Amino acid sequence: MAEQVALSRTQVCGILREELFQGDAFHQSDTHIFIIMGASGDLAKKKIYPTIWWLFRDGLLPENTFIVGYARSRLTVADIRKQSEPFFKATPEEKLKLEDFFARNSYVAGQYDDAASYQRLNSHMNALHLGSQANRLFYLALPPTVYEAVTKNIHESCMSQIGWNRIIVEKPFGRDLQSSDRLSNHISSLFREDQIYRIDHYLGKEMVQNLMVLRFANRIFGPIWNRDNIACVILTFKEPFGTEGRGGYFDEFGIIRDVMQNHLLQMLCLVAMEKPASTNSDDVRDEKVKVLKCISEVQANNVVLGQYVGNPDGEGEATKGYLDDPTVPRGSTTATFAAVVLYVENERWDGVPFILRCGKALNERKAEVRLQFHDVAGDIFHQQCKRNELVIRVQPNEAVYTKMMTKKPGMFFNPEESELDLTYGNRYKNVKLPDAYERLILDVFCGSQMHFVRSDELREAWRIFTPLLHQIELEKPKPIPYIYGSRGPTEADELMKRVGFQYEGTYKWVNP
Rank of each mutant, 00 (worst) to 15 (best):
Q209V: 07
L55H: 08
S84E: 09
L20V: 13
I167Q: 03
G242R: 08
P172K: 05
F66L: 10
S179M: 05
L121F: 09
F253C: 08
S179F: 03
G222Q: 12
R175H: 14
Q195D: 09
D24L: 05
D113N: 09
S8W: 04
T76W: 07
L43V: 06
A116F: 11
G69T: 02
D228A: 10
A127I: 12
R81A: 10
A2T: 14
T65E: 00
M125H: 01
Y118L: 07
S106I: 13
F138D: 05
Y70A: 07
G254D: 02
R192V: 13
D228T: 10
T10I: 11
S157T: 10
E193L: 03
H27N: 15
W54R: 08
S184P: 01
Y70W: 08
A127K: 14
Y112W: 07
S40H: 00
E63T: 12
K45V: 08
R227F: 08
A6R: 14
E244L: 14
K89N: 15
I162Q: 09
V108N: 06
L20W: 06
L235G: 08
P86G: 07
T51V: 11
Y112N: 02
N64F: 09
D79G: 09
W54P: 03
R215C: 03
I256P: 00
P172L: 04
E94R: 01
V108H: 10
L61M: 08
M125R: 04
F138H: 03
V208Y: 04
L137P: 03
I35C: 09
K238A: 06
E206I: 07
L142K: 07
G163H: 06
S189R: 14
K97C: 09
E19P: 12
R120S: 13
N153E: 13
G245N: 14
F26M: 13
Y107E: 02
T76M: 11
Y70T: 10
N229R: 02
T65R: 03
W164M: 08
I33Y: 13
D114P: 06
L60H: 07
S188K: 13
F101Q: 02
L140F: 11
M125V: 14
K238H: 02
L190M: 13
C232L: 05
I199W: 03
Q209Y: 05
Q161A: 15
F102S: 01
T145L: 06
A141W: 03
F237P: 03
L235R: 02
T243W: 02
F102L: 08
P92Y: 12
P172I: 00
A141P: 04
D42F: 01
R175M: 12
V108A: 07
D100W: 08
K171C: 02
P223L: 06
R74A: 15
F191C: 05
C158A: 10
R227D: 05
N210D: 11
N135Q: 08
D114K: 14
A115F: 12
P143Q: 01
P86I: 09
E244Y: 12
K46T: 02
R198I: 04
D194N: 14
A217W: 03
F26K: 11
F34G: 01
H201T: 05
D181V: 06
I52E: 03
S157V: 14
H201A: 01
K205H: 01
R166A: 02
F26L: 07
K152Q: 14
T31D: 09
T76H: 11
Q195L: 07
S40E: 05
F241S: 04
I199L: 03
T236C: 07
L211I: 09
A134D: 10
H201I: 03
V208P: 01
R17Q: 13
R227N: 10
I162S: 12
N122F: 09
I36C: 04
V150M: 06
T91L: 13
P62F: 04
R72L: 00
A115P: 09
L235S: 03
G242K: 02
D42V: 00
I33G: 03
A149K: 13
L7F: 09
S84D: 06
L55K: 00
W225Q: 03
R57E: 03
R72Q: 01
F216R: 04
G110T: 00
S8P: 08
D79P: 01
Q11T: 13
L130G: 15
L142G: 00
H27V: 15
E63D: 14
W164R: 07
F221C: 09
I52K: 02
Y249A: 04
L142I: 07
N153I: 08
Y112I: 02
A231T: 08
N165W: 02
Q111H: 14
A231L: 05
R215Q: 01
G69F: 02
T10P: 07
I167N: 01
S179I: 04
I224L: 15
V68H: 00
D24S: 12
S180R: 05
K152P: 00
I187Q: 04
